[in-house]
């Protein structure tokens, strides 16, 4: 399983200009092109998850995630916010890189947790924040995932 196989270039936003965590989550959910109601439900679930504890894991990275019936397969998106957002991260520092993962309650191949684990593994590599900052187009982001062998 390769992480890059789960990302599509239209679900990668490298120039987020949102002002709040909520606005950012809504924007990233919007990359999945669901109907308005489904987007609302998904946003609500992600918010609920955030209320149980921030998904900002430190070093400028956050991994919001949830399962919901409104998606029929695992979906992932990536957003980069250069100025940085208050995400109530563990290290209390601004978040610049957001990996969004959503999956239906049941998946045939059960990829949700492995994908979450791989993104966490990728995020822990020392040079990843720096390399994510240097990416100029979605294809380069995919190449970075491939290069890191995740």
């Amino acid at each position: 399983m390769q992480l890059r196989d789960f990302f599509s270039t239209d679900a990668i936003a490298l120039d987020l200009t949102t002002e709040t965590k909520d606005e950012t989550l809504r924007t990233l959910v919007g990359l999945f092109h669901l109907d308005e109601k489904s987007e609302g439900i998904l946003f609500k679930m992600l918010k609920r998850r955030e209320n149980l504890g921030s998904t900002g894991i430190g070093r400028g990275i956050a991994i919001p995630h949830c399962r919901s019936l409104v998606v029929n397969r695992l979906r992932v998106a990536f957003g980069r916010h250069t100025p940085g957002l208050d995400f109530k991260a563990i290290d209390e520092k601004p978040v610049h890189y957001i990996f969004l993962i959503v999956a239906p309650p049941l998946e045939v191949s059960n990829q949700y947790l492995p994908v979450l684990g791989k993104i966490a593994q990728f995020s822990k590599e020392p040079d990843v924040p720096e390399q994510l900052a240097a990416v100029t187009k979605p294809e380069e982001f995919l190449q970075l995932l491939e290069m890191k062998g995740v």
Partner: peptide, 13 residues
């Protein structure tokens, strides 16, 4: 249905 979806997602969580 919207409430049920939300409840079930929370139950799953």
């Amino acid at each position: 249905l919207e409430t049920l979806l939300e409840m079930q997602d929370l139950h799953m969580q």
